[in-house]
């Protein structure tokens, strides 16, 4: 299978999902206008503002925050020459500047990358992954992480998080207004409203946060699939990453930090397990990812 085609297919899919989120925002605003009249729209800037404030600060300083949250230690070329060489090789293949490299003391094999742009990127490996993987596998993992940097996935997930956050806030405001203060306004504005439209807008307001969450997770999964394909575009070696994912699949230890705040950034999700429904996971199932890489290798 051609990685260039897979790359554009995955990009298109995640763009479509982002448009889906924009559409959802439109529908929620329609619901607001239907239910509360023009005054309802007044809360939109507040919800968006709060969501922006809470997400974009952490987006801007993501490289520093994540290092603190995961306890990752920055290493230099002198500390770990081989790891530094490995990352530099992949960066040359990707045409990216060499990021800060960090190591997390943790026995579970895992890795992540973050940062608002390639110039502020940081890539981190657990001591576990450095122990269990050989050079070719680590190169695959590094390429997957650098693919996130190249595809600006920190930005994509910040946009998705902001939209989902704003929708959750909006829906929360509205439901409160309905319960506590909505009565008067409804008398003023909505006497001539179609009752079906009122019910529909109520349903929209109740379901919007869940829909936004599902869209956000779907975007996360698509970007993971895209990062796998982009990694192959960098190394032209699907085998390395496929073997690395097989090592992760065989390993049962899980990163200790189960903080949901940073779950989505690891190469293998520390939260998703076989009991989590596919709709609610941040990553596609390892088996699916391995199958795609196998198809790129030409073995089925």
């Amino acid at each position: 299978m051609d990685f260039r085609k897979l790359q554009s297919a995955n990009k298109l899919k995640s763009t479509e999902l982002l448009f889906g989120m924009a559409l959802l925002v439109g529908v929620v605003i329609w619901a607001l206008m239907t239910y509360f009249g023009k005054t309802g729209v007044g809360v939109v800037p507040f919800a968006v503002g709060i969501a922006l404030l809470s997400v974009w600060g952490s987006y801007w300083t993501s490289d520093k925050i994540v290092l603190t949250m995961t306890g990752a230690k920055i290493v230099t070329e002198a500390d770990n020459k081989q790891l530094y060489d490995l990352v530099t090789e992949v960066c040359i293949a990707a045409g990216l500047p060499v990021p800060k490299i960090a190591i997390v003391e943790d026995n579970a094999p895992n890795a992540f990358a973050t940062g608002r742009n390639p110039e502020h990127a940081v890539i981190a490996f657990t001591t576990g992954i450095l122990r269990v993987m050989n050079r070719e596998e680590l190169q695959g993992v590094t390429a997957h992480e650098m693919a996130h940097v190249a595809n600006r996935d920190t930005l994509v997930s910040a946009i998705a998080a902001t939209t989902a956050g704003a929708l959750a806030l909006l829906s929360d405001f509205m439901l409160r207004m309905m319960i506590f203060g909505g009565g008067n306004r409804r008398d003023n504005n909505n006497n001539d409203q179609n009752p079906l439209a009122l019910i529909a807008s109520l349903v929209v307001l109740i379901l919007a946060p869940l829909a936004a969450l599902l869209l956000r997770l779907a975007i996360s999964r698509k970007r993971e699939a895209l990062a796998d394909v982009t990694a192959v575009a960098f190394t032209r070696n699907p085998t390395g990453l496929r073997r690395a994912l097989e090592v992760l699949a065989a390993d049962s230890t899980v990163v200790h930090q189960k903080s949901t705040a940073v779950a989505h950034i690891w190469i293998e999700s520390p939260l998703d397990d076989s009991k989590t429904s596919k709709l609610f996971s941040t990553h596609p199932p390892l088996a699916t990812r391995i199958a795609t890489l196998r198809a790129m290798e030409g073995i089925s």
């Binding site: 060489d85 490995l86 090789e89 992949v90 040359i92």
Partner: peptide, 12 residues
């Protein structure tokens, strides 16, 4: 490592 870098630079 340098051989790898050379070949990735060619590819890029």
């Amino acid at each position: 490592s340098t051989e790898n870098k050379v070949s990735f630079a060619r590819q890029f």
